[in-house]
Amino acid sequence: MITHPFSYQAPSTIEEAIATLGRSRDGKVLAGGHSLLPLMKLGLAQPDTLVDIRKIASLRDIRAEADGTIVVGTLATHRSIAEDRTIGAKLAALAEAAAAVGDPQVRSRGTIGGSLAHADPAADEPAPTLAFDAIIRAIGSKGKRDIPAREFFKAPFETALAPGEIAAEIRFPAQPGRTGSAYLKFRHPASRFAVVGVAAVVTAKADGTIERAAIGVTGAAEAPFRATAAERAITGTKGDAKAIAAAAAKAAEGMTTLSDLAASSEYRRHLVSVYAKRALERATQRARG
């Protein structure tokens, strides 16, 4: 039950949506509603206006551009991402993260844009978004701007989006040949969110050595992060079990890991290494085809 009153609008253009948000006192975008409505039931969010963006059809598309960029509309549901063939083939870690969200009903409604904008530190899709160096294209009253994933997540439930700005699409750059990726997660047994989730993207050379690696970690810290020390450690190696284990051991280097009922800070640190190792192994295997 939601006890506080609010007004509801479902405009059919993004310009109208931005104008409606601008006119409201503390209006919010409504996407899948699977983070916002539970908060409104608890009274933790009490927006005066909800601007439902579901009628803006262009925000739902998943498409490949001529240069190989894969554009995922903000309204693409976790389910449509998990089921999309292009994403499965080119961005496996994203497909796996989407398939690992919550349960089937949550995946029917929840969207990638909502997940990124909500910025729950334990959300899944931020990890591959970071690892693939995706760009969040935002539209506001001052026009369009592109925010690199690395600059997007600021703190728990805080992003680089300005008030009144709408995330319109998530742009995943084309990946070079011999690239493989994977997402693996240690689930919270009750909430199903990530206690720790790791997305790894690995590009191999023809002789099998690791040319490039990117590792996005979620659940472990106040905001999702790139495990840069581990990325540096694996690059240029043969990508064998020893090199992967040595790199994965550095995956939480320099980070303050969270501590809560589900896992202590030390345990989370351990989980980051274990899941970084497994994700790197799988991504490397896929990169070598």
Binding site: Y8, A10, L30, L37, D52, R54, R79, Q105, S108
Partner: peptide, 19 residues
């Protein structure tokens, strides 16, 4: 509370009627 909305299983306690 699961129902089908446009063919997809949906928790009807987590969607507004207006949606």
């Amino acid at each position: 509370c699961t129902v089908l909305v446009d063919g997809r299983a949906t928790k009807s306690c987590t969607i507004l009627a207006v949606q």
